[in-house]
Write a protein that binds this DNA or RNA. Structure first.
Length: 182
DNA sequence: GAAATGATTGCC
DNA sequence: GCAATCATTTCT
C-alpha cells in the first residue's frame, strides 16, 4: 500500500477489515523502540450497527470515529485493557475496524498479541495513541508485509458483543496460530 | 449525583 | 465459572 494514499481508509469498515489482514502494524514507543506485528484478525463496526460505539451519535469517547478514515480510535475496556481501532470511511460517518490479533515476527513472543487487549499491551498502545493519524511520522503506521504467503480469509460472528451477533463481520486468516478465537 | 456497563483476560 | 477494575454512559 502507498502510505500517502489516505483513500485506502475511506472505504467502509466491512470492506476495509478483510483487506487489513496480512498487513504489518508498526508502533514506536516512548523509548524509541519499534514493535510490529502482522494483522491476522479484525472486526468491522458500522454506524447503523447496535454493537458500534458510534451508533448512538457522537460522544466524547467516540469523537475519533467521526474523523476521516485513517485515524486511530483507542479506548479502555473493562477498566484494564485498551482496544485499538482504525477509523474507516468518510469524515463524520462513525465507523471503524477493531484490530483483534497480531502475529509477532519474533518467535519468542508468539501469542503475546493474540487478542485485542493483548496486542495493545504488546505494542504499548494506550489512550496516548487515541485520535492520531496513522503515519510513520506519528510513530504509528501500516506497512505491506514482506514475504507473505497467500492465505484464505474466514468471516465469522464478532466476539464479546450483545447486539449484532448475526453479522459475520469478524475476519481472520485461516489456520493462523495467532488468531484469538476460532 | 448514582448506578450500570463493557469490542477482555487470566486464574479458580 | 468468574473476579479484576474504571472511564464512560445512562439512568434518577
Amino acid at each position: 500500500m502507498n502510505l500517502a494514499d489516505r483513500n485506502f481508509f475511506k472505504q467502509n469498515a466491512t470492506e476495509l477489515a478483510p483487506k487489513l489482514l496480512g498487513m504489518t502494524l508498526c508502533h514506536v514507543n516512548s523509548k524509541g523502540l519499534r514493535k510490529t506485528g502482522i494483522i491476522v484478525e479484525t472486526e468491522a463496526y458500522m454506524p447503523d450497527d447496535p454493537a458500534c460505539h458510534a451508533s448512538r451519535g457522537k460522544t466524547k469517547r467516540t469523537l475519533p470515529m467521526f474523523e476521516e478514515g485513517g485515524m486511530s480510535y483507542v479506548y479502555l475496556i473493562y477498566g484494564m485493557y485498551y482496544c485499538f481501532n482504525i477509523v474507516s470511511g468518510e469524515k463524520d460517518s462513525g465507523q471503524a475496524v477493531l484490530i483483534r490479533a497480531l502475529e509477532i515476527p519474533d518467535h519468542s513472543h508468539a501469542k503475546e498479541a493474540a487478542g485485542p487487549g493483548k496486542l495493545c499491551r504488546y505494542l504499548e498502545i494506550t489512550k496516548e495513541q487515541n485520535g492520531i493519524l496513522l503515519a510513520k511520522e506519528n510513530n504509528l503506521w501500516l506497512e505491506n508485509s514482506v514475504k507473505l504467503q497467500p492465505f484464505e480469509i474466514i468471516s465469522a460472528p464478532r466476539i464479546g458483543i450483545s447486539a449484532g451477533k448475526e453479522k459475520l463481520w469478524r475476519f481472520y486468516i485461516k489456520n493462523n496460530n495467532s488468531v484469538s478465537k476460532k
